[in-house]
């Protein structure tokens, strides 16, 4: 167990570790100065790749080779995509998809 002052230091360090990852790009490339062309290019093409990465990230703990083989996740994800392409209503797609998933994991 840590002492109170060690605990305070640890919390400060955790905060610093997290917030450095958020602030670093903005501190390295301040708004006043022209951002290098390469970084401008990155900030144009990265969003597409970053959202794809987030989608894959959500499926990282799904066991496709065991148990339900990822069936509830894939069916619910397909339902979200189909609903969204059909109605383009974010709350409907997300809400219905989540309810479908919660029902599926109780069935499978």
């Amino acid at each position: 167990m840590m002492t109170t002052s060690q605990l305070i230091i640890t919390i400060a360090i955790i905060t610093a570790g997290v917030q450095i990852t958020r602030f670093a790009p903005f501190l390295i490339f301040p708004a006043g100065k022209p951002t290098p062309k390469f970084v401008q290019y990155l900030s144009k093409v990265l969003p597409g790749a970053a959202i794809s990465l987030l989608v894959v990230f959500c499926f990282k703990d799904v066991g496709f080779l065991s148990g339900s083989r990822g069936a509830p996740e894939l069916i619910a994800a397909a339902a979200v995509a189909a609903l969204h392409l059909w109605k383009r209503q974010m709350l409907l797609s997300v809400g219905a998809g989540t309810v479908i998933y919660m029902l599926l994991i109780r069935v499978f």
């Binding site: 959202i51 989608v55 959500c58 994800a77 979200v80 974010m90 997300v94 989540t98 998933y101 919660m102």
Partner: peptide
Amino acid sequence: DGLDFVMTALFIVIF
């Protein structure tokens, strides 16, 4: 159980 799927669904919609 399973309510955390909202995040996955949200990212799919944004995708």
